[in-house]
Nucleic acid binder design. Structure first.
Length: 901
RNA sequence: GCGGGGGUAGCAAAGCCUGGUCAAAUGCGCAGGACUUAAGAUCCUGUCCCUCAGUGGGUUCCUGGGUUCAAAUCCCAGCCCCCGCACCA
């Protein structure tokens, strides 16, 4: 018994493998469904986060398959990256071997869990057959002008010995090793993601993604509309361009501030008496790390350049400062300062005693410069603003911009926070950037027919510098244009390049003419359901969107967005904390599978919490699931003789059988919608409930109904516990695979809400009898042998129906009472009580029309069971119209109970 | 500061969109019972307060208002918590 679930799992996994059950191919006749999880970095071992991710994806893929979709559900490995290289440095291992090993181990665990991947489509990014196409895409992007080289201040991680993209710096620290990043000024390769800024922003609206992910991307792209204003430099014909979102405050500008490292500064101060002092300031500010410089509490520091500019609308001469808070890479790196209406400018002006000018007056108060303790950033009416005075400030934004445009002093413009994507990495284990540096021709792309540029094997891993540089064979090459001695680029690509299009490769993983087959991609794309962690909200998920748009413009695909629907799954916790080695609270999936088998692990991780929420790992919970699954299995194993495939004759069924049929069908219906909307935990709960009902009623129902119900349960459970379901399906006498079966259709004729309702009344009656018995025996010391159940008077049933009718017609309480009082057959004094009870607490009003006979029949069917459970003789009686009843009879739907000695 | 998500019984967690079978699913914990030589497992029952042999009454779903015959659910205001972004001009 103990290992039965495990054995079953192995058995069916083998059968799936041998029959290629989950092989997928394009079929224009069928509706496709592309279900995908973020592919893992192959660390060698699965963790619970993986298990959760893939269990969610697999159950969904299986579900869609059962719904009749042609499902693409692949798996691969994001297998370039630092761990392999670090292993090479530390243990002298070959990164390629190391990686292949890790993949093999990981794949084995995934297979043990029974995920229904089409393994023939495996994609491994470290293989030349894959990264060749990275290089191909790089060159295409280069042709499109989307790749360029630029010297700039970049983030350098001293621990990883490489540069990082902006997206990979979190709180001034490296996303991988959490080392503080440093600033370096070097020339690097960039991808022009900013060319798609507007589209990346706009298309977010059409995505079925969690709102917070969309918000994070919106923030990251950071679009702001504003105005570019030209300020003339005094004593020169140069102009300084300034970006502002507040052109309405232009008349209040009393100084300009420039980022210290702005190139124009050198020019500005050259040969002036202040030159030395300013250069000192720049050095001090710029050398400081980026992180501390942009910290919120950083003291605002500045220095006067000795130069002046002209405010284009007032023609006033205003001083030019440098300050540490102005960022070179946002806007133009030059800011116009309005101390009265910007808090930062206000503080700066106070500190350096720069004059202020009020240009916006709020409606409810009157500001005076001398009394201001902080800047006024709200709305108001313009003052001291020439022809614009008196205008509402929001209107003035447009009016002043228009004025500037007419006079050639500025123009409307849009700014983004999004920066271009720096993809150079000074590490070995990545895709070589296919460029060659010729002394004569500069950087020259490697011709397409020379791809792939393979990673050399003759490199040294010292932990210092880029290992690629140590391979002479790799570095030394010829210029493709002139044939002269030239050097290969030794930078490799950011691994996020690999993961930005891998989902396309799955559609035709063996294609060798292009990165992927256009027709296949056209059929399968976009990914209908994508599942992964929130941590990629602005990394992988943004880059992939960019690639999709770029590849569309290259003409390879015709979709705008890669991932239609996204689920970000919650973390798996232990004792309220994330599992981590340092905390020693890691639960190893391998051990769990080994102990309980894959179905238990899958079922638990899917049922313990809703998918997007955090999940608390619980050993007791796993035990419970294990017991439950064993119970389900024995429900099949112990009843195999009952599976005789006899048709159900509805008319002859007893109440319990009818109840079970009804419950089964409503469950099928509900579970289907629950799974579709990823209420996986709720779906499993309902399946569990039905199974428990079946187990409870097992001996009281006929074989046909038993078989019917178990079959539906096995089908509903198939996406979650596929091995167990296959086994039951097999026990039931089918020779097909349940994994490839259709989702059960519901039989509306079997659905009878009334009978389900009565079932709950029956349970209630039983507990009422038992409770009453216990209580009365304790209090009176008497023993009882008989319980009389008294069904309320017939007219009460009619009364309830009448009240329902009235309530559907009017909402006026008084009117309802009056109408009913006019009906003579109801006993007025009691009727009023009932009506008032119902109106006060409408839940006592049953949904369906009641009939006393129906209820009586139902209770009679259960009489035997009640007698057994309560050890009392049960008498069911009707409360007669004339009879003076001692027991105050309950509302219809629930009989009164009288105990007899 | 901007934006997103939340606050439900001892705990965890459904319900809220689509108001009424909601004193509120389910799980854990706790209590009682059945079975058992016993333990375990399993099953049943109870678990806001009061009362009663049963119908019942009272007070609950962050706080305060509102809409409605009827609010955990809809609307308004406030408090608190979590997350993302942020010297962005």
């Amino acid at each position: 018994m103990n290992s039965q679930l495990k054995e079953i799992a192995k058995k069916w996994q083998n059968i799936w493998r041998e029959t290629h059950a989950f092989k997928s191919k394009e079929d224009p006749e069928k509706k496709k469904f592309y279900c995908l999880e973020m592919f893992p970095y192959p660390s060698g071992k699965l963790h619970m986060g993986h298990v959760r991710n893939y269990s969610l994806g697999d159950s969904y893929a299986r579900f869609k398959r059962m719904q009749g979709y042609n499902v693409l559900y692949p798996m691969g490995y994001d297998s370039f990256g630092l761990p392999a290289e670090n292993a090479a440095i530390k243990h002298k291992e070959d990164p390629e071997e190391w990686t292949a090993n890790c993949i093999a181990m990981m794949k084995e665990q995934q297979e043990q869990l029974g995920f229904s991947y089409d393994w023939d489509r495996i994609v491994e990014t470290y293989k030349p057959e894959y990264y060749k196409w990275n290089q191909w895409i790089f060159l295409k992007l280069y042709e499109k002008g989307l790749v360029y080289r630029k010297k700039s201040a970049v983030n350098w991680c001293p621990h990883c010995h490489t540069v990082l993209a902006n997206e990979q710096v979190i709180d001034g620290k490296c996303w991988r090793c959490h080392t503080k990043v440093e600033v370096k000024h070097i020339e690097q390769w960039f991808l022009k993601i900013t060319a798609y800024a507007d589209e990346l922003l706009k298309d977010l609206d059409q995505l079925d993604w969690p709102e917070r992910v969309k918000v994070m991307q919106r923030n990251w792209i950071g679009r702001s509309e504003g105005t570019l204003v030209n300020f003339k430099l005094v004593g020169s014909d140069k102009t300084l361009k300034v970006f502002t979102t507040r052109p309405d405050t232009l008349f209040g500008v009393t100084f300009l501030v420039i980022a210290p490292e702005h190139p124009v500064v050198q020019e500005l101060v050259k040969g002036t008496p202040k030159e030395k002092e300013i250069k000192e300031f720049i050095r001090r500010v710029v050398i400081e790390e980026k992180a501390t410089r942009t910290a919120e509490d950083k003291e605002k520091e500045g220095i006067f350049t000795g130069k002046y500019a002209i405010n284009p609308v007032t023609n006033e001469k205003i001083p030019i400062y440098l300050a540490n808070f102005v960022l070179l890479d946002y806007g133009t790196g030059i800011v116009m300062a309005v101390p009265t209406h910007d808090q930062r400018d206000f503080e700066f002006a106070k500190k350096y005693s720069i004059p202020m000018k009020l240009v916006i007056q709020p409606k409810n108060e009157t500001l005076k410069i001398d009394e201001m303790k902080e800047a006024y950033e709200g709305e108001g009416v313009l003052i001291n603003s020439g022809q614009f005075s008196g205008m509402d400030n929001e209107k003035a934004k447009e009016a002043i911009t228009k004025y500037l445009e007419e006079k050639g002093l500025g123009k409307k413009t849009v700014q983004y926070k999004l920066r271009d994507w720096l993809i150079s990495r000074q590490r070995y284990w990545g895709t070589p950037i296919p460029m060659i540096k010729c002394p004569k021709h500069g950087y020259v792309p490697v011709p397409y027919d020379q791809l792939p540029v393979k990673l050399p094997k003759d490199v040294e891993f010292t932990g210092q510098g880029n290992p690629l540089k140590t391979s002479e064979k790799f570095v030394k090459t010829k210029c493709p244009i002139c044939g002269a001695e030239a050097e290969r680029e030794t930078d490799t690509m950011d691994t996020f390049f690999d993961s930005s299009w891998y989902f396309l490769r799955y559609t035709s993983p063996k294609e060798d003419k292009l990165p992927f087959n256009k027709e296949a991609a056209k059929y399968w794309m976009p990914v209908d359901q994508y599942i992964g962690g929130i941590e990629h909200a602005v990394l992988h998920l943004l880059y992939s969107r960019f690639f999709t748009k770029a590849l569309r413009d290259i003409g390879l695909i015709d979709v705008d967005e890669p991932f239609k629907r996204l689920l970000t799954q919650g973390m798996v916790l232990k004792d309220g904390e994330a599992m981590s080695k340092s905390k020693g609270n890691v639960v190893d999936p391998g051990e769990i599978i080994d102990k309980y088998g894959p179905d238990t692990a899958r079922f638990f991780i899917l049922s313990a919490a809703s998918p997007e929420k955090e999940l608390e790992w619980s050993t007791e919970g796993v035990d419970k699931v294990y017991k439950f699954l064993n119970k389900l299995l024995s429900l099949s194993k112990n009843n195999i003789k009952r599976f005789r495939h006899e048709p159900i004759n509805y008319e002859t069924l007893n109440s319990m059988e009818k109840y079970l049929l009804s419950k089964t069908n409503t469950t099928v219906k509900e579970v289907e919608t629950d799974i579709d909307s990823f209420k996986t935990n709720v779906a499993l709960l309902k399946i569990t409930n039905l199974t428990n009902e079946l187990a409870k009623l097992s001996s009281k129902i006929n074989d046909a109904v038993f078989e019917y119900t178990l079959e539906k349960i096995s089908l509903m459970a198939a996406p979650f516990t596929p091995h167990l379901s296959e086994e039951i399906w097999h026990d039931l006498g089918h020779d097909t695979l349940i994994s490839l079966e259709k989702w059960p259709e519901i039989n509306l004729q079997y659905i009878n809400r009334r009978i389900e309702e009565l079932q709950t009344i029956k349970d209630k009656v039983k507990s009422d009898i038992i409770n009453t018995l216990n209580l009365v025996q304790r209090k009176t010391g008497k023993t009882f042998s008989t319980a009389k159940l008294i069904l309320p008077k017939a007219w009460k049933y009619e009364l309830v129906s009448e009240i329902r009718k009235q309530m559907s017609q009017t909402k006026n309480k008084g009117e309802i009472i009056k109408n009913i009082m006019n009906i003579e057959k109801f006993k007025q004094s009691e009727a009023v009580q009932i009506i008032q009870k119902i109106l006060k607490n409408p839940k006592v009003l049953p949904n369906e029309d009641f009939s006393r006979e129906e209820e009586e029949n139902f209770l009679n069917d259960y009489k035997e069971e009640l007698e057994k459970d309560t050890k009392l003789k049960i008498i069911i009686e009707k409360e007669e119209e004339s009879e003076e009843q001692k027991a105050r009879t309950a509302m219809p739907g629930k009989p009164a109970i009288v105990l007899l000695e």
